[in-house]
Structures are given as C-alpha cells and as structure tokens.
C-alpha cells in the first residue's frame, strides 16, 4: 500500500517536472535568458580587464563572488570541525566512562 502511494507520487512529480522541462527556454541557444543576460555579457567581456584572469569561471569565483567563496570555505571548515568534534567526543566518553 505504501509503495503504491510512493510510486503514484513519483509518477505525478515526474510528469510535472517533465512538463516544466519541456516549457523551459530551448537549451543550448545563445539567446536564452540566462545566456543573454547583461551580467553574463559583462563578465565575458570585462573579466580580463577587471581581474587579469583569462579564465572567466576563476574570475567569478575568486574575484566577483569572492565573498561567497569565503562562505564556501567556511562551510567546508565547519564540516571538518564538526566531524572532529564527534570523534573527540566519543574518545572522551570512552576514557571517562
């Protein structure tokens, strides 16, 4: 019974998502809203002048959105800190009790 409900849900969701996908702008065209946006054009045209880096992706990651990348490294750092804390906590528990 439960699996029938799950399959029904998944089929409905798949139909909805495929309908959305068919309705999206055609993929691979330079004229889609994402590819033709002024921001994209600005980055492609001016990244070398602004940052001195020919690789536009690196220019976006480490210059235009450097603050975002700082948050990203913080996420990675926090994950490691949490994992180490789990491990240390278990060792302390073992030695105390």
């Amino acid at each position: 019974m439960k699996s029938v409900l799950i399959i029904l849900l998944l089929v409905c969701l798949a139909a909805l998502l495929v309908a959305v996908a068919l309705d999206m702008p055609p993929l691979g065209e330079p004229s889609t809203p994402a590819n033709a946006s002024p921001l994209t054009r600005y980055v492609i045209a001016n990244a070398v002048r602004d940052t001195g880096s020919p690789n536009r992706v690196a220019a976006v990651v480490a210059d235009y959105r450097a603050y975002d990348t700082l948050g990203e490294t913080t996420v990675l750092f926090t994950a490691v800190a949490a994992i180490l804390a789990l491990e240390r906590g278990r060792k302390d528990e073992k030695s105390n009790g």
Binding site: G52, S53, D63
Partner: peptide, 27 residues
C-alpha cells in the same frame, strides 16, 4: 573587502603564471 586591483594587488600581464592579483593568491 576582498577587492582585487583597487586594493593594490598587481594584476600583471594576463596569461602569465604570476598574474591575476588576488585570484592567484586565493586559489
């Protein structure tokens, strides 16, 4: 915060290894 050329990092000649100012150092 995290400014590149405006903060005085030398951009260098694009295409050289030591160029790009803050991008190279952050990477």
């Amino acid at each position: 915060f995290l400014a590149n050329a405006r903060a005085g990092f030398p951009l260098g000649v694009p295409g050289r290894l030591f160029s790009g100012g803050i991008v190279f150092l952050l990477n």
